[in-house]
């Protein structure tokens, strides 16, 4: 029973990497930008949640904060990312690395280094009990939000005209251009969505994790592992990799070695890359070869 609980807990833990990893993967696939600042947007989402939440409560914060973070993403896309789509990816790596440091230090200067006080709202506290299975209600809510985001994003990408252009843009941006479609507004929309998702993750995790300036740096590495295992740019790759990473951590802990749970996912990544250098579901994207 305990092992089952650990595996399930691992699956749920995968849900929060997923919210970060999806945006990361999307922005890379379309613009070729490896966004090291993605964790910083997660942190900004959490800090905004507390700031907005003190006035409007948890629900107000949950609705508003991701939108504000997404809008911030739009600004960053328009004035920074856009200059780096066509240049060596190493330059955008430097840019976003710098952005992440600026954001972390800005949070430290505005809010201070000590953690901000924030809790789960009273009505979402408590446990869900099904037979022998007991689990916090709030974590199940996070899972529901993550599943909702995956479903919504999948629909948007696979079933709408917007999604068709984005997918075509991922495979062959020049062809999209030749057909008379400008990718610029699509790039902006993808930055809004992807970065907004990081903000949403920040809002959802703020009540259960320490809110401190470096919280973005904490989650970004795990999110990258997920994206790399899944295959950069692959939607289902990110989803499945998030679950695999979560379950691996759960299994290692269940086996009695919580101190190796972090190391285990890097080992997993190494093994996957040895067998499949583009990740589990990494497609061959011509312009990145």
């Amino acid at each position: 029973m305990l092992i089952l609980q650990h595996l399930l807990n691992g699956l749920l833990a995968g849900a929060y990497y997923l919210l970060i990893a999806l945006g990361l993967s999307l922005i890379f696939a379309l613009g070729g930008i490896v966004n090291l600042a993605h964790g910083a947007f997660y942190a900004i989402g959490a800090y905004l949640a507390v700031t907005i939440g003190q006035q409007l409560g948890f629900t107000g914060a949950a609705l508003l904060s991701p939108v504000v973070v997404g809008l911030l993403g739009l600004v960053i896309e328009r004035f920074l990312f856009r200059r780096f789509y066509k240049v060596d990816p190493a330059l955008s790596l430097l840019l976003t690395f710098g952005l992440a440091m600026v954001a972390e230090q800005a949070l430290r200067m505005v809010f201070g280094a000590p953690p901000l006080s924030w809790s789960i709202p009273q009505e979402l506290r408590g446990q869900v009990i099904v037979g022998d299975f007991v689990y916090p209600r709030y974590r199940l809510l996070i899972l529901a939000v993550a599943v909702g985001c995956v479903a919504g994003l999948w629909f948007l990408l696979q079933r709408t005209p917007f999604g068709r252009v984005v997918r075509a843009g991922v495979q062959n941006p020049d062809m999209v251009g030749a057909l008379g479609i400008s990718l610029e507004p699509y790039m902006a929309a993808v930055a809004f969505l992807g970065i907004g998702l990081a903000g949403l993750a920040g809002v959802m995790l703020a009540p259960i994790f320490t809110i401190h300036p470096a919280m973005g740096a904490e989650i970004i590495t795990s999110a990258f592992v997920v994206v790399v295992i899944g295959g950069l740019g692959s939607f289902w790759g990110a989803v499945i990799a998030a679950l695999i990473v979560g379950v691996t951590k759960g299994a290692v802990t269940a086996a009695g070695y919580p101190q190796y749970s972090e190391a285990a996912i890097y080992l997993l990544m190494l093994l996957v890359l040895l067998v499949r250098p583009r990740g589990l579901f990494g497609e061959r994207i011509q312009r990145f070869e």
Binding site: L2, F209, T253, S261, E262
Partner: peptide, 12 residues
């Protein structure tokens, strides 16, 4: 020191 998710330990 970089572990942030205590849920597996809490189950234990």
């Amino acid at each position: 020191t970089d572990v942030t998710d205590f849920s597996p330990l809490l189950l234990e």
